[in-house]
């Protein structure tokens, strides 16, 4: 696996604020890497440093093996899609897409051909002569994508590309971006705060907090095994409790099962390795499921509040104040490293 880009000990400070703190990261060639985290975690700053819009206060950035830390953006050969799309309002769609090719002195005929080819790739060839303002948000987004791809960049950088789209379109565009990546073979770096987006789209995901990497790896490796509480919380592991030895366990609401009535004190733990007795504090109706809040005591004797996602008939017999028994599905309990 060769690297398309590398961060080596990169830091970015704005005054007293450290946006990115000693970041070392390898972006694998031909894969889609997401930088994921809450706002202020340094993901966009990292992307901007990679694109050359912001110079790191320390460290080295390499693109295709070459030290690019001090290279201005126009000489990095990267394609960037901005959250606001940043289309040129005074140019047609075709001229927007052809802008980078014109700068590269691609001859007129060849340029026209490549512009149309790229617009076809994003399904917008019929709008080539329009001005961006006449286009819908989703179409503008595709133009921005086409403009970045047309120059055949070394890397395609996407800064929260889907966050300005409505929910339905957003889900469609996830698959669309993956399709385009597969067809072009581009290395993609995508910044997002949406874990579902990252899980669905990434080959590799990098979870960040306060300018540091919290965990990285393919979604299928990261999701079932969060490395720490932050990652677990960010990925939707709502419940944290301690086992008999005081080690931290976490479990997702949909992996807890709730049954009416208290189990015997000496009843064995279920296949999930968990058996807690408690009372229902609250039941929230959510249409397809119920979110049941249970106050219980974990094996160290500490009070824990558990969120349990209950579907269909399993909710029978549950009511606020009622005694319940909570157990976990097999393999659902995750122990966090100390």
């Amino acid at each position: 696996m060769t690297s398309a880009a590398e961060f080596v000990g990169v830091s970015q400070k704005f005054g007293d604020f450290t946006a990115v703190d000693d970041l070392s990261l390898t972006i694998a060639e031909g894969r889609l890497t997401t930088l994921l985290g809450p706002s202020g975690c340094g993901k966009t700053t990292s992307l901007r440093m990679l694109a050359g819009y912001s110079r790191p206060t320390a460290g080295t950035i390499r693109i295709a093996g070459r030290d690019c830390t001090r290279v201005p953006p126009e000489r990095r050969d990267l394609g960037m899609v901005f959250q606001s799309y940043a289309l040129f309002p005074h140019m047609t769609v075709a001229d927007n897409v052809g802008y980078g090719l014109k700068l590269r002195r691609v001859a007129k005929e060849e340029r026209r051909r490549r512009v149309m080819e790229t617009l076809e790739l994003v399904g917008l060839a019929h709008l080539a002569g329009n001005r961006p303002k006449k286009l819908s948000g989703g179409q503008q987004q595709r133009v921005a994508l086409a403009r970045a791809i047309a120059i055949r960049p070394k890397l395609l950088l996407l800064d929260e590309p889907l966050s300005n789209l409505d929910a339905r379109l957003r889900v469609q565009m996830r698959a669309e971006i993956r399709r385009i990546q597969a067809e072009t073979g581009l290395t993609v770096v995508l910044v997002t705060h949406d874990q579902d987006e990252a899980l669905e789209m990434s080959d590799d995901m990098v979870l960040m907090r306060a300018g540091r990497v919290m965990q990285q790896g393919p979604p299928r490796e990261v999701f079932p095994a969060p490395a720490n509480r932050f990652v677990a919380e960010f990925l939707g592991y709502e419940n944290f409790l301690a086992d008999a030895e005081g080690r931290t366990l976490t479990v997702r609401p949909e992996n807890l099962r709730v049954a009416a009535g208290a189990a015997d004190a000496d009843a064995p733990a279920g296949p999930g390795g968990l058996l807690l007795r408690g009372t229902v504090a609250h039941i929230a109706y959510r249409g397809a499921d119920l979110l049941v809040t249970v106050d219980a005591t974990d094996d160290t004797g500490a009070a824990v509040r558990l969120l349990c996602d209950v579907r269909g008939g399993a909710a029978e017999g549950l009511s606020p104040g009622g005694e319940v028994t909570v157990d976990a599905r097999e393999g659902a309990l995750v122990r966090l490293p100390d």
């Binding site: 201005p72 953006p73 126009e74 960037m80 606001s84 040129f88 309002p89 802008y99 700068l103 970045a148």
Partner: peptide, 19 residues
């Protein structure tokens, strides 16, 4: 009123500051 990123977009596509 213009998107402040349009100039950055141009730079990223290969335009010098003057261009």
């Amino acid at each position: 009123l213009a998107d402040p990123h349009v100039e950055e977009a141009a730079r990223g596509l290969g335009a010098s500051p003057l261009r």
